[in-house]
């Protein structure tokens, strides 16, 4: 059975300012996210991730284009959509003078089910090791983040929209968060997660979109992104690097980023191994290591002008 589309974005653009001071924060974004997937939205600061999220939540209005969540237009049905969405902002601000419990109770009452939601919130708080009896002003930034996560998840939303969710969380809590995301997915719920932490996206997301300067550069499954056709090759010779090897490597169209250090050669290889192995045969290869590119390598490749990963 085909899964339903939860988020459908069509030609979404956002421009700030006017006249000569006009800046495009997002350009002609087309994207869809399916039910039950964890979608990673990658990009450095200022790429347009938060702008996209704020438009999806109807906090800011698109300059062009449209988007729907659960088949409902984000502007016309924002209240119905918000009922089924949990949101964690990138820069979370809460009422400083109020305790976590008070805020949970308030948000739960706006959501219309105080008893059930607060019970769920208590469970999440326990798992994240959060003391909800403290006032927000007394919480560390990591604990504020945990409270934000509890607020976003406590009503079991069908869609979670999380902007840099693990910012400031310690590694143990990050692990708990990853487990929670897996549980969400297992329940058929959807997560739209923006991050600049590539390892996190690699660890928990099914698909990722890479955003650069307001343009969506690529959308791929994590599996496919990891399967790009290049490898890092690290060759250790027993003796000196054979004469003429450097010239041969640099002359090859499939080899780049050659780094020779003593008897060691590192390079980036695109394509088959055979031509390289033939070049190396003039020397005695003591050790040869081949590394799969990390998502960060792929990410950097997308961001390097004129050298996009395939």
């Amino acid at each position: 059975m085909a899964s339903a589309t939860v988020i459908e974005i069509s030609g979404l653009s956002k421009t700030y300012g006017s006249g000569s001071r006009q800046t495009a924060a997002l350009r002609n974004l087309n994207l869809s996210v399916q039910q039950g997937e964890i979608f990673g939205y990658l990009g450095p600061n200022g790429a347009g991730k938060t702008t996209t999220i704020r438009m999806l939540l109807d906090l800011i209005r698109p300059s062009n284009g449209s988007a729907s969540i659960f088949g409902m237009d984000i502007r016309d049905h924002s209240v119905e959509i918000h009922r089924r969405v949990g949101f964690l902002p990138g820069e979370l601000s809460l009422w400083e003078g109020r305790t976590g419990q008070q805020i949970i109770h308030y948000v739960a009452s706006v959501r219309g089910d105080t008893k059930g939601i607060t019970k769920q919130a208590d469970e999440f708080a326990k798992r994240l090791q959060l003391d909800t009896s403290k006032r927000v002003r007394d919480l560390s930034s990591g604990n504020k983040r945990k409270l934000g996560l509890v607020l976003a998840m406590m009503h079991s939303p069908d869609l979670l929209i999380l902007d840099e969710p693990t910012n400031g969380l310690d590694p143990l809590v990050q692990q708990t968060f990853h487990e929670m995301m897996d549980e969400f997915r297992d329940k058929g719920k959807t997560v739209f997660l923006s991050s600049h932490i590539l390892s996190e996206v690699q660890a928990i997301c099914d698909r990722a979109g890479i955003l650069r300067d307001g343009d969506l550069k690529a959308v791929e499954s994590i599996e496919k992104l990891m399967n790009v056709e290049f490898h890092w090759v690290d060759v250790q010779f027993r003796d000196a690097v054979p004469e003429g090897l450097a010239r041969q490597l640099q002359g090859s169209s499939e080899i780049s980023d050659v780094d020779i250090n003593g008897s060691r050669v590192k390079m980036r290889l695109t394509g088959d191994f055979d031509p390289l192995l033939r070049m190396l045969s003039d020397g005695y290869v003591k050790d040869l290591r081949v590394e799969e590119p990390t998502l960060e390598d792929i990410f950097l490749a997308y961001y390097s002008d004129g050298r996009e990963a395939r």
């Binding site: 906090l59 918000h82 601000s93 607020l151």
Partner: peptide
């Protein structure tokens, strides 16, 4: 100004 409005306006209230 404080940013609290982002949380409030993501709730189901017009």
């Amino acid at each position: 100004q404080s940013g609290v409005m982002d949380v409030v306006m993501s709730l189901p209230i017009s």
